[in-house]
Design a binder for these strands. Structure first.
Length: 258
DNA sequence: ATGGCTGCTTTGAGCAGA
């Protein structure tokens, strides 16, 4: 089974690349972030034509998430599209059950800067997410949490740790959240394997950051223990960051023997 | 030192992303 996540930074602009990528990689499940499109305008027919069922929690301009499931898999049930007890107009979460597999897609707030209101909102969102994940793990032994976490967990996930020290995406409080989620029993699938150093999932559009590999690893797939035990690979598809009109994020793709 | 790109928006300069 192949499960992936991709922040597409506007589904409208990225649709041709998404369709090509789906036909190339053929994941069983794909979590999308930053679709930036409301539900009425979602390109349902174009995505379904690739052989996927599609679910979305959309919002125009900002945020917006979607969940694509290969049509040969069971129908999605027990959908969740908000953090319980956290009143939030922003569409940043979408999950559901596919048979016994539970998949939750996250678009964690960016936070902008550690002295901003948006950073406070990020930490509040994450605290609500911690409680949610604890509850999800209790209910669903086979849990995948995939998305744009907007957290670089360690210095080795940062091209220039000195420049990023203490900055948003790398602050102690954000990294503590990531460790909290690991401590609940969710493994960072990328770190289950030897990986090339300086592997990242996001590169700024500016300053030739991609050709210089000035990136961060902020997109993640977390796995509960029963899934981590059967995970056979995790890679970041940096080819998707190349060429015309790329997203600034690359997809993360996980293989599970299931 | 600054902004440097991209996508979006009550279409045009400003916000947000990370």
């Amino acid at each position: 089974m192949r499960i992936a996540t991709w922040n597409v930074n506007s589904l409208t602009v990225r649709l041709p690349r998404l369709v090509a990528w789906l036909n190339d990689v053929r994941p069983d499940v794909l979590c999308l972030q930053e679709t930036k499109i409301d539900d009425a305008r979602f390109p349902r027919a174009e995505v379904e034509a690739t052989g996927y069922r599609v679910h979305f929690a959309g919002q125009r301009t900002y945020n917006g998430v979607a969940l694509l499931v290969r049509e040969s898999l069971p129908e999605l049930t027990d959908r969740v599209d908000a953090l319980p007890g956290f009143d939030d107009p922003q569409k940043r979460l979408l999950g559901g059950s596919i048979g016994g597999l539970r998949v939750v897609g996250f678009y964690v707030p960016n936070g902008q800067a550690i002295d901003s209101d948006k950073y406070r909102y990020k930490l509040d969102w994450c605290a609500a997410a911690t409680a949610f994940l604890r509850s999800e793990l209790a209910r669903h032994p086979e849990l995948v949490v995939a998305g744009d976490f907007n957290i670089a967990p360690e210095d080795r996930d940062v091209h220039d740790p000195a420049a990023w020290a203490g900055q948003v995406l790398c602050s102690d409080a954000e990294r503590a959240v990531f460790r909290d989620w690991q401590a609940l029993g969710l493994a960072d699938s990328f770190r289950l394997f030897d990986q090339p150093p300086l592997t990242f999932s996001w590169w700024d559009y500016r300053q030739l950051a991609f050709p210089k590999n000035h990136g961060l690893r902020i997109d993640h797939v977390l796995l509960s223990a029963p899934l981590a035990a059967r995970c056979t690979g995790c890679r970041i598809d940096r080819n998707a960051r190349k060429g015309e009109k790329p997203s600034d994020h690359a997809p993360v793709v996980v293989e599970i023997d299931r």
